[in-house]
Design a protein around this nucleic acid. Structure first.
Length: 456
RNA sequence: GGCGAGUUAGCCAAGUGGUAAGGCAGAGGUCUGCAAAACCUCCACCGCGGGUUCGAAUCCCGCACUCGCCUCCA
């Protein structure tokens, strides 16, 4: 298995620290609003990574944080006259609903920042002891000058950082503009925690270090997020984690590219050019088409422009997969996937999660196998293998609807209609077809007889 | 200004040295009581200009354009 590592900028052979067990931390949502589909592109990339690792036989321990204390949350909660918990509850709930809608597998842990204040304070304490911090007006800062390797992940050198640095955009004082805040002193009206560091609240970056190390250890395998997290968030995580433990923090950093709007601009809350999952579902798009579009529309490291056309193409492609399943019919699933196709599929995914290529191989196979089915050459064994292959692929894609095994009533009506057709009573035949359609069953007449499938 | 990614058919997209996967859309055909599906066929000289090579979308140089990051945005 090969994965792209932002640290080296290269695709590298993946080897977990513990043989057969992958520990990964996936940066989760800030629950100040509904997540938009750009956010979900990243979460789907992480779902892909998780599923591929599992399919490769790894045990996976995945942690996804819920950032529930942050500037926007504090501001909005105050505007609503609510506590942080009251305000974020709705969006946390919505987030999990959205994960289900997109069939994103659950991680093992979803730690919340507000429930790990103690761990964060402990970590900051450790940084204090080791001389990486300073305090100004009750806020604690990380001194970047104390961590020479700073900039390694984002490939920025200190000089470059200085050139790009702006002066103090927030209200907190720093010795050096590059430094970042670990603990923010309480400001009037803000929810705060009373700790040995003073009354205040944690900075953003420290939560991920504290929570990832709590659940995964001081060194773990994979840490993911959107590319916008590379700098400063992940860079800061490395600095504070490694400064505290003296150990390598993360071995493989993986980042998903952005989803763009139809104009090719980054989708973001700030630009107000975003779409939520809920909007799309309300517009009548199938969730599985959204899943398919975001997952296969482009390799995860390439930008993807989102458009209605993309969704429509996804919808049609899924229908083709459904149709293939219907055509193979309800058959046993114990068979092994068609070997050569399986190999091409697996190899593509093992090559830095190249799902677009894998899907290409799958469709190539489907096209060829349809030809065999058409000519009547496909053996029952081959059909079983093809079905197993489709199921194998669908363990990653999770978009196909497989035909149900039997439905006696449907079979009876189909037989009755066939009898009508045999005596050329097409009026009766069409009547039965309409009747079944009313039951959500669509009939397809083929050379091999009549097939049926459920329609929406 | 610094760093990085990218430019492949109408749209999306894979492809890192041997003369372009796949999906969507489109055209024609086969099949068919009808419908739908399926199948077959057709549809790209890979941003521009040089260079290396027997041979380049793939390597090198230059140019153009797009996008991202450069302090709390997945």
């Amino acid at each position: 298995m090969r994965l792209h590592n932002t640290l080296s900028g290269q695709v590298e052979e993946f080897k977990p620290i513990e043989v057969g067990h992958v520990r990964m931390y996936t940066c989760g949502p800030t629950v100040h609003d509904y997540a938009h589909i750009g956010n979900f592109r990243t979460f789907l990339f992480e779902d892909l990574l998780r599923r591929v690792l599992l399919q490769q036989g790894y045990r996976v321990t995945q942690v996804m944080n819920l950032t529930d204390v942050e500037d926007r949350i504090i501001k909005k909660a105050a505007e609503h006259g609510q506590t942080i918990d009251e305000f974020t509850e709705k969006y946390i709930e919505a987030f999990f609903e959205d994960l289900d809608t997109l069939r994103i597998e659950r991680a093992e842990h979803y730690p919340r920042a507000t429930e790990h204040i103690f761990e964060m304070v402990s970590l900051i304490d450790l940084l204090n002891e080791k001389g990486h911090t300073y305090v100004t007006d009750g806020s604690t800062y990380f001194r970047i000058a104390s961590f020479p390797r700073y900039g390694e992940l984002a490939h920025l050198d200190h000089a470059g950082l200085k050139a790009g640095a702006r002066v103090d955009v927030d209200d907190y004082g720093k010795d050096d503009p590059r430094d970042f805040v670990l603990w923010k002193a309480r400001k009037p009206g803000e929810q705060s925690w009373e700790t040995p560091l003073g009354i205040g609240r944690p900075g953003w970056h420290i939560e991920c270090s504290a929570m990832s190390m709590k659940y995964l250890g001081e060194s773990f395998d994979i840490h993911t997020g959107g590319v916008d997290n590379i700098f400063p968030h992940h860079e800061n995580e490395i600095a504070q984690s490694e400064a505290a433990t003296g150990k390598p923090f993360v071995r493989y950093w993986m980042h998903a590219q952005h989803l763009q709007d139809a104009m090719g601009e980054k989708m973001s809350k700030r630009l107000k050019n975003f779409t939520t999952l809920r909007d799309l579902v309300a517009e009548g798009y199938q969730p599985r088409a959204i899943r398919y579009a975001l997952l296969t529309g482009a390799h995860y490291r390439s930008p993807l422009a989102f458009s209605p056309e993309l969704l429509k193409a996804a919808d049609s492609a899924i229908k083709r997969l459904d149709e293939f399943a219907v055509r193979l019919g309800p058959i046993p699933t114990e068979a092994e996937p068609t070997p050569d196709v399986r190999k091409r599929w697996d190899d593509a995914l093992k090559d830095d999660l190249n799902l677009p290529a894998a899907v290409g191989h799958l469709f190539e196979f489907i096209k060829a196998f349809n030809t065999r089915l058409e000519s009547g050459k496909a053996t029952p064994e081959e059909r079983a293998g093809a079905m197993a292959m489709l199921r194998h692929a669908n363990r990653i894609l999770d978009v196909v609807e497989f035909p149900e095994v039997v439905d006696a009533e449907v079979d009876r009506l189909i037989a009755e209609r066939q009898a009508a057709r045999d005596r050329r009573d097409f009026a009766r035949a069409d009547e039965i077809r309409q009747q079944l359609l009313g039951m959500g069953i669509q009939l397809d007449d083929t050379k091999d007889g009549t097939r049926w499938k459920r329609v929406r």
